[in-house]
């Protein structure tokens, strides 16, 4: 897993670094002091190596904590596992954010489109009924006008 790989490579570098910075190498660089105090040189070296490893490991833990690396590595491992079947290269951001963002809008627009189609159809249906009522009302009024006209003519 990515988490283990991360720890392994970092620890390997630390081990190799410590191996490279051997006591012999240390004593040969601090020859003048080593001649004067060989035991002290040895204990200073050991303390140095212990502290160096401890503080680097602690700092790496800090980096992992700060970046939530464990969590991210695990979820990335899962995503990689899920994408195993996928042979083709996957989509990647085009580099023009507004274009990518707009196509991320597609499902909402499609949803909005089908919603609008539905409500428009309902509204047209309502309006059809309203129009029928209006036409009936107009017919009624025409009828009343004709009745009044007939009465008027009768009196005329």
């Amino acid at each position: 897993s990515r988490g283990q790989l991360f720890d392994t490579v970092v620890n390997t570098v630390l081990e190799k670094l410590v191996a490279a910075g051997s006591y012999e190498r240390f004593a040969s660089c601090y020859r003048c002091f080593y001649k004067l105090q060989p035991e002290m040189t040895r204990s200073i070296y050991e303390e140095f190596i212990f502290q160096l490893q401890a503080s680097i490991k602690e700092e790496i833990q800090e980096v992992k904590k700060e970046g939530k690396l464990e969590l991210l590595f695990d979820s990335l491992d899962k995503l990689v596992e899920e994408a195993k079947e996928q042979q083709e290269p996957a989509w990647r951001p085009s580099g023009t954010p507004e274009e990518d963002a707009s196509s991320a809008m597609v499902p909402y627009l499609l949803k909005h489109q089908s919603y609008l189609r539905r409500v428009l159809k309902e509204k047209e249906k309502d309006n059809k009924q309203l129009a029928e009522a209006v036409l009936a009302g107009r017919g009624r009024i025409k009828e009343l006008q004709q009745q009044i006209q007939a009465r008027r003519e009768a009196w005329e």
């Binding site: 990515r2 990335l76 994408a83 290269p89 996957a90 196509s103 499609l110």
Partner: peptide, 23 residues
């Protein structure tokens, strides 16, 4: 190359929409 990388065939969940709707 191995730890902090995203393989080319992998699409992040938030980008699934681009796979479903390649507009």
């Amino acid at each position: 190359q191995l730890v902090l990388n995203i393989p080319p065939n992998l699409l992040l969940p938030e980008d699934k929409v681009h796979q479903q709707y390649p507009y």
